[in-house]
Write a protein that binds this DNA or RNA. Structure first.
Length: 550
RNA sequence: GUCCCCGUAGCUCAGUGGACAGAGCAACCGCCUUCUAAGCGGUCGGUCGCAGGUUCGAAUCCUGCCGGGGACGCCA
């Protein structure tokens, strides 16, 4: 479409209908061709404001430019069927029905791959998300990050990128020791320490603690809290992995913070920064000169007690990820990590990497509310609702849709009681219903011995309703592309709703199975099959099931 | 105090400088002899937080203010 406009512009200039530039006027910024989807169907399938943008540099009235462009567009061999000029100078273009028919046939041929974008040179992208420390089961506060990260990965993969899903966790240090101490306390019938953990899962762990681990913890010279903590955290981590699997979220790589030290990545990163002159010692601590890159203060890498900070681990991890060959790193973080964004990106730059290759997605909070009362999530107090409990109440598909339909920057109030009550009205069921309805039609058709035509050719030119539906199907690839570019998925949910609406309208206006007219029935069956495919692919992109009956 | 995000219909939220500001839900009125009524049609509903500015054109960009959330550790 853009190519057609570009060709038309070039030909208009070539033929002298339009001036190449403004002549004496300074060559301003080059005019970029924008092709948009008008909200109003009366404005065609595509529109461009090119004539409006050219009016000033060319010093010509926009309508005159628009007419010249429309003239050339009318002769273009591309998919454009008709062109209108609308004041003050918009060009409104309509797709040619035959081109749409070919597009739908191609979509059917592509099957599950329809909507995915072929990318000859995929970028290797690492997406790190969730990364909750294994000191307790995932609670509903972790849900958004899990879904947003997973959705982002699905979208990037569909856009043809090579994505690695990564979970980063802490398997040593004070939190894990606290967990061990808490388990030991419960096992021994003692009071859990003040800064220990108290949830029901701690009691489960205490009960399940193997004698062998307990014996090892009690060996002379052993650190009981650390030994038990390590065992417990691995136990918890495995539970987290299982919970995530139930959400439809999987990871390719689990990286422990400890491994970054054992394998020397932190030392190597420190060395690299030191060579660059980006480190200095002060008050017994080792500092990174983050201010040299615009941060408002320098950051401690290694404390005066010799322990590395969390930031120390971060720089080791950065080096490790780049060393593994990733071209782009995405971190899905809670909005509370906002303060650490600058230092990590600065460290990447200081180590000689491209700062823009390190990107943080800050997820706004979800306020969980039950009956107007905000719920606090604290592993230490043991007051929290686990992810598994939430899903038992509202279901994965509904929860996924809820998260996918909102920009990740917007804060969400989530009333659990309301969500349960409204779950049957969740738009996700509306979209799934459209899929199930089509499945039912196809079953009925098969029972009647009718088969979809091999092509929708001939079904669209004289049928505005069918043509409108078909045009909508063909938008999926651009919806995917937009989502991948913006790192947002609400365009996909909106598209799914729109597509379902279009199908339901088609269902109302056009009878698919008509024994009296087998030819029309066959092409409509083909169109409806393509619609079902598009709905299924859209839902798959969101990790949501596409049921054949409801 | 400094920095980041948000403020759009009763509610939850879209809106990447353009054509009358949209969707879902809620509310109200209609529609099942006929491929699934988890559906369809219609109605109601907005000072786009406020005030300036830039632009042919601003919900969108800039400045200031108001309101909500978050961040500003040798915590993780």
């Amino acid at each position: 479409m853009r190519e057609s406009v570009e060709r038309a512009w070039a030909r208009a200039v070539e033929s002298g209908t339009l001036p190449a530039s403004a002549g004496a006027t300074a060559p301003a910024a080059p005019v970029e061709i924008e092709v948009s989807r008008p909200d109003n169907p009366a404005h065609g399938d595509f529109a461009t404001n090119l004539a409006l943008k050219l009016a000033r540099p060319l010093r010509r009235p926009p309508l005159e430019i628009a007419r010249a462009l429309a003239d050339e567009l009318g002769r273009d061999p591309g998919p454009i069927g008709s062109v209108d000029v609308a004041p003050p100078g918009f060009l409104n273009m309509r797709l040619d029905a035959a081109a749409v028919e070919q597009g739908v046939d191609a979509a059917c041929a592509a099957g599950p791959l329809f909507g995915r974008i072929a990318n000859p040179r995929p970028r290797r992208i690492n997406v790190e998300f969730v990364s909750a420390n294994p000191t307790g089961p995932l609670h509903i506060g972790n849900a958004r990050g899990a879904f947003v990260g997973d959705l982002l990965c699905r979208v990037l993969e569909a856009a043809g990128q090579a994505v690695t899903r990564e979970y980063y966790f802490n398997d040593f240090g004070s939190q894990v020791r606290q967990l061990g101490a808490s388990v030991l306390a419960v096992r021994g019938g003692r009071e859990v320490p003040d800064d220990g953990y108290r949830g029901a899962y701690v009691h489960d762990l205490a009960r399940e603690l193997p004698d062998e681990i307990r014996a090892r913890a009690l060996e002379p010279g052993a650190d009981p809290d650390a030994v038990v903590g390590r065992w417990a955290s691995e136990r918890v981590r495995a539970g987290i992995e299982a919970s995530l699997a139930r959400l439809g979220v999987r990871f390719d790589v689990w990286t422990s913070e400890g491994s970054l030290y054992r394998d020397g990545w932190v030392d190597r990163a420190v060395e690299r920064l030191r060579e660059g002159g980006w480190l200095y010692e002060q008050d017994g601590a080792l500092w990174f000169r983050s201010t040299a890159f615009g941060d408002d203060k320098d950051r401690v890498v290694r404390r005066s007690n010799g322990q590395f900070t969390y930031f120390g681990s971060d720089i080791g991890y950065l080096l490790q990820k780049f060393d593994r060959g990733f071209e782009h790193l995405i971190y899905v973080w809670g909005a509370d990590h906002h303060g650490t964004v600058a230092r990590v990106r600065n460290a990447a730059q200081a180590m000689g990497f491209d700062k823009d290759a390190v990107e943080m997605l800050l997820i706004a909070w979800v306020r969980f509310v039950r009956d107007g009362q905000e719920l606090s999530m604290s592993k230490r107090s043991g007051e929290f609702i686990t992810l598994d409990e939430l899903l038992a109440e509202i279901g994965v598909d509904a929860a996924r849709w809820f998260i996918a339909a909102r920009a990740h920057t917007s804060g969400i109030d989530f009333d659990i009681e309301l969500a349960k009550r409204q779950s049957s009205e969740n738009p996700v069921y509306y979209v799934q219903y459209a899929h199930a309805r089509i499945s039912s039609i196809l079953r009925k058709a098969a029972e009647a011995g009718m088969r979809p035509a091999d092509s929708v050719a001939g079904a669209l030119a004289d049928d505005e309703v069918a043509l409108g539906l078909a045009k909508l199907l063909l938008r999926l690839p651009e919806v995917v592309e937009d989502a991948a570019t913006l790192h947002e998925t609400h365009g996909i949910t909106a598209y799914g709703t729109e597509l379902a609406t279009a199908f339901h309208a088609f269902y109302r206006d056009r009878r698919v199975i008509d024994r009296a007219d087998p030819v029309t029935s066959a092409t409509r069956l083909a169109l409806v099959t393509a619609t079902r495919l598009t709905l299924a692919n859209t839902l798959a992109l969101l990790g949501i099931s596409a049921p054949d009956s409801m």
